[in-house]
C-alpha cells in the first residue's frame, strides 16, 4: 500500500486515533481509581456493597478524577515553564 490516503480517509484515521486515545485514557483512569477506591472504601468486604460503601466509592472516584485533572494541569504548566527557561 503506497498510495496516499484520501482526505476523507485521513479525517477518519485522525478521528479514530483520537477516540482510541481517549478510550485508553479513560480506561486507565477507571482502573487506577477502582484500585485506590476499593482500598479506601472497602476495608472488610461483606456479602454486598452497602449504601455507605457506594457513597464512599462515588465520592472517591470523583476526587480521583479531580486529582488527575489537577495533576495534569500542574504537570503541563511546569513543563511549559521549564521549556521557556
Amino acid at each position: 500500500m503506497t498510495d496516499k490516503l484520501s482526505g476523507a480517509q485521513k479525517d477518519e484515521l485522525m478521528q479514530q486515533v483520537q477516540q482510541q486515545l481517549a478510550v485508553a485514557n479513560f480506561q486507565e483512569l477507571v482502573t487506577k481509581a477502582t484500585h485506590k477506591c476499593y482500598k479506601m472504601c472497602i476495608a472488610k468486604p461483606g456479602s454486598s456493597l452497602s449504601t455507605s460503601d457506594q457513597n464512599c466509592l462515588a465520592m472517591c472516584m470523583d476526587r480521583y478524577t479531580d486529582t488527575y485533572n489537577h495533576v495534569i494541569r500542574v504537570y503541563t504548566t511546569k513543563l511549559q515553564n521549564g521549556l521557556q527557561r
Binding site: 486515545l21 485508553a24 485514557n25 486507565e28 483512569l29 480521583y64 486529582t67 488527575y68 495534569i72 504537570y75
Partner: peptide, 11 residues
C-alpha cells in the same frame, strides 16, 4: 499519550 501516561503515574 505520553503526557497522559505520566499524569496517571503521578496521580
Amino acid at each position: 499519550a505520553q503526557l497522559q501516561s505520566s499524569a496517571h503515574k503521578l496521580t
